[in-house]
């Protein structure tokens, strides 16, 4: 039962991710991306990782995609204002995306040696996640926090009206 649900959600996620690329209207693309995030959150719930599921919805679907939508609505993109892309640029984009795909596949191929028990109890409970983050991976966790802080300061600097 759970496996079938998992597969259905996975297919749904892939289909809506494809629709993100194939729809012409940027607003529709964003809404399809939101659907993709919901499908992925559903997968997290099936893997007993409720915390990750809900954080995925709060951060990605609830905050980042709202900002995307906000910006696209402000830009008012439509067919008339869409810039024309030359064949050369399209070719370069395809090659760059292909190389990214190779990198992703290559990095994921090495990762399947770890044994992961799917659908196990208590794997993604917030207590266990906290233990892992603050005991086993404390240094990477704090370093990424500093990285976020630096990004925030950078964004504030860019947003300032007069830089002396």
């Amino acid at each position: 039962m759970t496996v079938y649900l998992f597969i259905i959600l996975g297919v749904f996620a892939i289909l809506s991710a494809l629709m993100v690329v194939f729809t012409k209207n940027p607003i529709h693309s964003i809404l399809y991306l939101v659907l993709t995030f919901f499908a992925i959150a559903g997968e997290y719930v099936l893997l007993n990782a409720q915390f990750l599921a809900i954080v995925n919805i709060i951060v990605y679907a609830g905050a980042i995609m709202v900002l995307f939508l906000f910006v696209v609505m402000l830009l008012n993109l439509n067919k008339e204002t869409e810039p024309h892309k030359s064949i050369l640029r399209q070719l370069i984009a395809v090659i760059a995306a292909g190389i990214l795909l190779i990198v992703l596949v290559g990095s994921l191929k090495g990762a399947d040696t770890m044994t992961i028990k799917p659908f196990a109890q208590n794997t993604g409970y917030i207590e266990n996640l906290g233990q892992v983050l603050f005991k086993d991976f404390l240094l990477p966790f704090e370093v990424s926090a500093i990285l976020f802080l630096a990004a925030m300061v950078g964004a504030v600097m860019l947003g300032k009206k007069d830089i002396k």
Partner: peptide
């Protein structure tokens, strides 16, 4: 659910 408050936050943000 063991993350009740976060569920509320998620629904508000949706």
């Amino acid at each position: 659910i063991n993350i009740g408050i976060l569920y509320v936050m998620a629904v508000t943000s949706i």
